[in-house]
């Protein structure tokens, strides 16, 4: 058993045992460990990538939201403005229409009043006429109750005709 001379026995055992250890460890340890490490590394890398993506997406969504909000605000302002102007328009229109109707109603009322007035005057006129006729008749009857007065009247008429 010299220091620098390899012994055949130890060479034999070292070869056999090392090969066994290598085979056992390679199959039962290094293979599953290497694949597990790889799985974990890819999982971590994927997760990090996914997180990065999610962050980016989040920022994008936030930006989109901001934009949408801005747009919504503008839309709202626009709608409010429009509504206001529409309301004003309606008010204006209503006012105009009302005045037209009122005018027409006034005019109609005036016409009706005028008609009524005319009719009333007509009635008054005819009433006055019939009243005057009645009065005249009564007066005539009073005056012409004797012959002399009748003759006087006829003469008077005649005179008048002659003049004509």
């Amino acid at each position: 058993m010299d220091l620098v001379t390899p012994d055949i026995g130890l060479i034999f055992w070292q070869t056999v045992v090392f090969l066994i250890v290598f085979a056992v460890l390679a199959v039962f340890v290094w293979k599953p460990v290497a694949s597990a490490l790889k799985t974990r590394e890819t999982a971590i890398a994927d997760s990090l990538k996914a997180a990065e993506l999610a962050k980016e997406e989040m920022a994008q969504i936030k930006e989109d939201n901001e934009y949408l909000l801005q747009e919504a605000r503008m839309e709202r302002d626009k709608m409010l403005k429009e509504a206001l102007s529409t309301a004003n328009q309606i008010k204006e229109d209503a006012r105009a229409e009302t005045s037209v109707i009122a005018d027409r109603m006034i005019a109609d009322a005036k016409n009706a009043i005028e008609g009524e007035k005319k009719a009333a005057l007509q009635e008054v006129k005819s009433l006055v006429a019939s009243l005057s006729l009645d009065i005249a008749e009564k007066l005539l009857r009073e005056k012409l109750s004797d012959d002399k007065s009748q003759k006087d009247l006829i003469e008077k008429f005649l005179k008048e005709v002659k003049v004509n």
Partner: peptide, 26 residues
Amino acid sequence: DFSITKNVLFLFINSIILILLFMAVA
């Protein structure tokens, strides 16, 4: 001479430690 010498014994011990330890790790 293929004897189980002191070194061969420790070769066995070393190998058993390696296998048991890394089996536990795996």
